[in-house]
């Protein structure tokens, strides 16, 4: 394996890691806060990308791309916000809400997926990447756009972390995640905060979806694969800290890139799931986790 190839595989792994981090963090934030697993997260990716594609049809250039991204993320925040009241809130009172939420979010995922199919058709689409060009780093050629994607993903995650740490709403979200009853007694509006959480996760998913949609082709079901990877990431990394799934995302991204290079595309999921199972056996709270489950 030449140095060139090595660098190429590594950079594509790091790029994947950035996208997975964006996805897995959304998933982890919802999981730690609402205590339910959101199976609709994958379709948030697809829907976000399609909305951006639709907007991008009317605009051109980098500014248009930016505009499309902003519109899509705002729309997805609204959709995530609303979906909390449709998919999760009505079942809060039952004691097996975790199981019910699995079913309702799966139902939501199916409905959104088929709505995309109805609305935009099954044909593959691509959002035109706004930046082309290649730069040389350590003798390896790297797409400029890949670099931008990685930077923006990390920036978005940092912004989310700061938001959770400093803003009143962010702090309230963490409070609700850590002790729901105490948060209620403090007078926090729990269902509103849950809805904001889901909205933020959906917006992050949309951003990841737009990037994936500009790198590859998008189809109505193209969110399923990232969802599965994000699930592996969340389990692998644990959710003890905000940063745990982010580290794990880069581990999974780089592992995926190398396993694709050496073992081929078909063996890669098997490798990732084997890693996940190994972690579950050896350190069930995740590589970067401890037993508490908070933000």
């Amino acid at each position: 394996m030449s140095f060139d190839t090595f660098m190429f595989v590594l950079t594509s792994g790091v790029l994947l890691g950035g996208l997975y981090a964006l996805l897995a963090t959304g998933l982890a934030v919802v999981w730690t806060t609402l205590q339910v697993f959101n199976f609709a997260h994958g379709t948030f990716v697809a829907l976000g990308a399609y909305i951006a594609w639709q907007v991008a049809q009317t605009t051109t250039g980098a500014l248009g791309y930016l505009f499309a991204t902003a519109i899509s993320m705002i729309a997805m925040f609204g959709i995530g916000f609303a979906l909390h009241f449709i998919l999760i809130k009505p079942f809060e009172k039952t004691n097996n809400v975790v199981l019910l939420a699995v079913i309702t979010t799966l139902a939501g995922a199916t409905i959104i997926e088929n709505a995309i199919l109805l609305g935009w058709g099954p044909r593959d689409k691509q959002i035109t990447p706004p930046i082309t060009g290649v730069i040389e780093v350590f003798g390896a050629n790297i797409n400029l756009f890949d670099l931008v994607i990685l930077g923006v993903s990390l920036l978005a995650l940092a912004a989310l972390a700061v938001f959770l740490k400093i803003s009143r709403i962010g702090r309230s979200m963490r409070a609700v995640a850590q002790n729901r009853e105490a948060a209620e007694l403090m007078g926090l509006n729990v269902s509103m905060l849950f809805a904001v959480t889901l909205g933020l996760a959906a917006a992050a998913a949309a951003l990841a979806g737009i990037f994936v949609g500009s790198l590859r082709f998008m189809a109505p079901t193209f969110g399923n694969d990232p969802l599965m990877k994000a699930l592996v990431v969340v389990i692998l990394g644990g959710v003890a800290r905000f940063s745990s799934p982010i580290y794990a995302a880069f581990v999974v991204g780089i592992a995926e890139a190398f396993s694709t290079f050496f073992l081929g595309l078909y063996w890669t999921p098997a490798v990732l799931f084997a890693m996940m199972i190994a972690v579950l056996l050896v350190k069930p709270e995740g590589l970067f986790g401890h037993r508490s489950k908070t933000l």
């Binding site: 009143r168 702090r171 963490r174 850590q178 948060a183 926090l188």
Partner: peptide, 19 residues
């Protein structure tokens, strides 16, 4: 009351007057 284990005293007191 276990409150919010991972938050600092300052953070908790900052959001307390919400009601």
């Amino acid at each position: 009351n276990l409150l919010f284990p991972e938050m600092t005293v300052e953070e908790v007191l900052a959001i307390a007057p919400v009601a």
